Simulated scan of single mutants.
Amino acid sequence: MRESAAERHDRLLALVRERGTARVADLATLLGVSPVTARRDVEALAAKGLLDRVHGQVSWPERPERPERQGDPGARRSGEGLVLGLLAPSATYYFAEVIRGAHEAAARAGARLVLRISDYRPEEDRARTEGLLAAGAEGVLVAPSWRGPEDRLGYGDWLAELPVPAVLLERRADPGTPLDALDQVVSDHGHGVLLALRHLLELGHGTPLLVARGDSPTALAVRAGYAEALGTLGLEAPGPVIDSVPADQNPEGFERAVRALHEAVTSGRVSAALVHNDVDAIEIVQRLADLGVKVPEDLALIAYDDEVAALADTPLTAVAPPKRQVGRHATELLVERLTEAQDEEAARRHLSLLPRLRVRSSCGAPRGVHHA
């Protein structure tokens, strides 16, 4: 994929901030671009006040502390005038609501929210965040592009070294690591899975089977929550977790997942399933119908995410993580950190928000909303 100018600018800013001062010719080599391109980039960033440029070199600008607004000593305490940065892996699907909640909370505080999208490229997270700092962000909300533990290990340490307050968003740090000392606001996906399983059991089904992806922190949390819920409920899984994959990206893998679920239903091993995520669940229901298995007559099904579950031909019961509230609470916490900076003893917080279960037609139960 060709790198955009904005992405290149973020990388350039990260290089200058790391070094303090750099020659334009050296930046061209490090960025893999021509000297002319590097010079134009530097000129554009210097014009915005994001870099200082003198005699073929650039440096990270010194930023004086922002004074209180004259005649309004409570402005900083209220959050008015703050600039907040938000790094998200995507601006669509799951994270659209997280971003919306953060934007609403920032607006209520009188703060400005600046957004960067990493497009699920963990190696770009640091540069994107440096771009936010260069754009004036005084604190950041960061949802790293980690897809699994290896990304967290390979692309996570820099977060603990940020020079501004940071809140980790919809991501959990490993206990005992430097990242674990950051504020965190997350959805409790384990609780969401437990809600789904309990509901299906209350409807008279045997232990539900899990069909889930394995390519995101949410997917991994759902898988871990499933194992934990089985232990809490004293149950054994009716079979191995079925690996789900996007039908458009891996048709063969998708068909294998559907066939595995079809066999589990027609053999009588299961009559209920939890599927992560909504899109996969909708396509699985459609394909199962082609094979003669109907939802909810033959299979009670609950989806996880509740982004588009209600729009299926048979509206899907779904676990709904509190995405907008995650963005809102994280932003409020960041504003508090910035406006109460004099309180060095303030405890860091790990805030877990509970999902809801939204009951629709796909599980064969009366419709409604179950909270916990």
Results as ranks from 00 to 15, higher is better:
residue 92 T to E: 13
residue 76 R to W: 13
residue 18 E to N: 12
residue 51 L to G: 04
residue 36 V to Q: 13
residue 91 A to C: 07
residue 55 H to Q: 15
residue 105 A to P: 04
residue 84 L to C: 11
residue 79 G to S: 12
residue 51 L to T: 01
residue 102 A to R: 02
residue 32 G to V: 09
residue 79 G to A: 10
residue 74 G to F: 15
residue 13 L to Y: 03
residue 62 E to C: 05
residue 8 R to F: 11
residue 42 V to N: 05
residue 86 L to H: 10
residue 72 D to P: 08
residue 100 R to C: 08
residue 94 Y to P: 03
residue 93 Y to H: 15
residue 56 G to W: 05
residue 72 D to A: 15
residue 15 L to A: 15
residue 83 V to S: 09
residue 78 S to G: 11
residue 92 T to A: 14
residue 41 D to F: 03
residue 41 D to G: 02
residue 81 G to P: 11
residue 86 L to R: 06
residue 82 L to F: 13
residue 79 G to H: 05
residue 54 V to C: 10
residue 52 D to C: 09
residue 13 L to N: 05
residue 59 S to V: 03
residue 49 G to L: 10
residue 11 R to K: 13
residue 24 V to M: 00
residue 104 E to P: 02
residue 28 A to I: 06
residue 68 E to N: 13
residue 87 L to A: 03
residue 22 A to W: 01
residue 95 F to A: 01
residue 90 S to P: 01
residue 11 R to F: 06
residue 74 G to R: 14
residue 13 L to M: 06
residue 49 G to W: 11
residue 76 R to Q: 13
residue 33 V to P: 02
residue 82 L to D: 00
residue 95 F to E: 05
residue 76 R to A: 15
residue 56 G to E: 07
residue 66 R to F: 08
residue 97 E to I: 06
residue 97 E to Y: 13
residue 37 T to N: 01
residue 88 A to D: 04
residue 41 D to N: 04
residue 50 L to I: 08
residue 76 R to K: 14
residue 60 W to N: 04
residue 73 P to K: 13
residue 47 A to G: 09
residue 81 G to C: 10
residue 34 S to P: 08
residue 95 F to S: 05
residue 67 P to N: 11
residue 90 S to K: 06
residue 98 V to P: 03
residue 30 L to Y: 02
residue 75 A to F: 10
residue 92 T to S: 15
residue 79 G to V: 08
residue 7 E to N: 12
residue 53 R to F: 09
residue 81 G to I: 11
residue 81 G to Q: 10
residue 61 P to Y: 10
residue 19 R to G: 00
residue 103 H to C: 07
residue 63 R to A: 06
residue 35 P to I: 04
residue 11 R to T: 01
residue 54 V to G: 00
residue 39 R to A: 00
residue 46 A to F: 08
residue 16 V to N: 00
residue 19 R to F: 06
residue 53 R to P: 01
residue 13 L to G: 04
residue 22 A to K: 00
residue 93 Y to V: 13
residue 77 R to K: 11
residue 76 R to E: 11
residue 97 E to G: 06
residue 33 V to L: 02
residue 92 T to M: 12
residue 11 R to C: 00
residue 47 A to F: 08
residue 70 Q to L: 14
residue 28 A to L: 01
residue 77 R to T: 10
residue 98 V to T: 01
residue 36 V to M: 12
residue 20 G to W: 06
residue 86 L to W: 05
